[in-house]
């Protein structure tokens, strides 16, 4: 398992490595800033969906141990989301905070993206073993926010698109399937009032 998580750590850095190389070699096309911001947004969402897939995939024989890398998957989502947001602040707003705040308040797709990011923040902070122990049964409840964050991310993507909603819709379908999968378990939790973990 240690080998597997080391492997995953390297894999998780590959998109960033590619982005860095591509930026240097001028492979990002005519609008490299837009391309880089979107690239990180895509990966933030993909790592998030992968994180949520661990639960159903764990049922597959031989994949039960996946749960051990879930934290890393989630943290990679947060990592790319942070790059995405930093890219936006530095390369799209040029640290102009006034225009950033205006953008945040005026444009719904930015507002929703910020909500998604805001929800990821406490999850990343409380992802350590220490917090897991300290929060006990509340840890699981808190971390259910990840579904809401993912939903906001998909809505963010949907609102950003001008006309061709195919891509955000496909991501929405995947997320919906993952949510539907959880419904029976949540029903049981509600009935028993026991924590979901």
């Amino acid at each position: 398992m240690i080998a597997a998580s080391r492997f995953l750590f390297v894999v998780g850095l590959l998109p960033l490595a590619w982005l860095t190389y591509a930026a240097w070699q001028d492979l990002l096309g005519a609008n490299p800033i837009e391309r880089a911001i979107r690239f990180c947004g895509d990966w933030a969402l993909w790592w998030l969906l992968l994180t949520l897939s661990v639960r159903p995939l764990r049922r597959v024989p031989g994949l039960t141990e996946l749960i051990r890398v879930r934290r890393m998957l989630g943290l990679f989502s947060f990592f790319y989301a942070t790059l995405h947001v930093m890219g936006y602040v530095a390369l799209d707003r040029y640290f102009d905070w006034e225009s950033t705040v205006r953008d945040l308040l005026k444009h719904p797709y930015i507002t929703v993206g910020a909500l998604s990011f805001l929800l990821l923040l406490p999850l990343a902070i409380t992802s350590t073993h220490g917090y897991m122990k300290r929060l006990g049964r509340y840890w699981g409840r808190l971390h259910r926010l990840v579904y809401i964050s993912a939903a906001f991310a998909v809505v963010h993507y949907w609102l950003m698109v001008k006309a061709d909603h195919l891509q955000p819709a496909l991501h929405g379908v995947v997320l919906t399937m993952l949510l539907v999968w959880r419904i029976p378990a949540w029903k049981i939790t509600m009935r028993n009032k026991t924590p979901p973990f």
């Binding site: 040029y94 444009h107 719904p108 797709y109 950003m160």
Partner: peptide, 19 residues
């Protein structure tokens, strides 16, 4: 005249760094 998705005050000239 702002657009619901983008402010129109500035633009990125393709090939340039700053808006």
């Amino acid at each position: 005249v702002p657009h619901p998705r983008w402010d129109q005050e500035s633009e990125r000239r393709i090939g340039e760094f700053r808006r």
